[in-house]
Design a protein around this nucleic acid. Sequence first.
DNA 1: AGGTATTAGTTGGAAATGTAACTAACAACC
DNA 2: GGTTGTTAGTTACATTTCCAACTAATACCT
Lengths: 155, 155
Amino acid sequence: MTGTFDLEDFLPYLLNQAADTLSLKFQRHYKARYGILRTEWRVLFHLGRYGPLTATEICDRARLHKTKVSRAVAALERKRFLARRESKQDRRQSILALTRQGRAAFDDLHAAARAFDAEIQADFTREEAAILHDCLVRIAGIRRTKDGTGQAPER
Amino acid sequence: MTGTFDLEDFLPYLLNQAADTLSLKFQRHYKARYGILRTEWRVLFHLGRYGPLTATEICDRARLHKTKVSRAVAALERKRFLARRESKQDRRQSILALTRQGRAAFDDLHAAARAFDAEIQADFTREEAAILHDCLVRIAGIRRTKDGTGQAPER
DNA sequence: AGGTATTAGTTGGAAATGTAACTAACAACC
DNA sequence: GGTTGTTAGTTACATTTCCAACTAATACCT
């Protein structure tokens, strides 16, 4: 009714624009350098940060569909960034862990991510950054767990 | 060095999660109801909100690649949501405008977007909402222009 | 005018994604 | 033990997106 309602006032749109902007910028750290895609980078991060995991665990934590994870894992395996180990308890699943090479890539990218994030945060006051983070967490419905992992919300 | 750095602390990731969450939710307003895709919805919005435009103008305003716009326009034309008119000044370009049907869809979706946005904002205080918006605008590098349109940054 | 460079928009093919169907292993129940 | 239902993960196919090449019209430059 009152005032204008432009696309940039529409949160989903604005959020997408902001997300695209940053993703595109950060891409340059991993895409050309390690020849990996965004989904692969996410899987790599999860394995590097939260230890050996099964594909399903990655799906839950990263909120990625199992087909995406399946393909990312296959790609990372081909590139020798991770290796599978058969699970003794359940022969359907495999335990995924980074190789030495994968670990090296993770360490580098983890540091790059940290630096990149710090660089962005530098544009905001501490309070702004805190509110931004809090709002986004609420929108995304992320629940923090004991190990500090972002978990998927109820399905 | 100090403290943990989890994926959810990484702004590009968090932003993507939040954006995906909202986009997915809002999708239900246009996807099934009007049989259009996200890019088409954006083009529709731009035409509805900012009057007849050429494809290139839409590219600039919406920050979409010309191939995406070209295809979205073709799709919207097939679905009779917009019509092309030849430009007198430049015969390469065509002026795109919504049809009556396109206008009706826009009016509906515009209202839906407004309501959806209000619903989200309701979870935040006025101050939080203002800061969130401001931070996102800065991240996305959106510059407000006289007509209230979000413009693309320098290329 | 004539040649070269830009610009508007489209199209083709490769890569990525989403959805559904599938296989194999486990679990539960009788 | 055998039937039925679930779950882990992969594969196939359709759709969407990305990138690069292309056509056609305009602008620039001499």
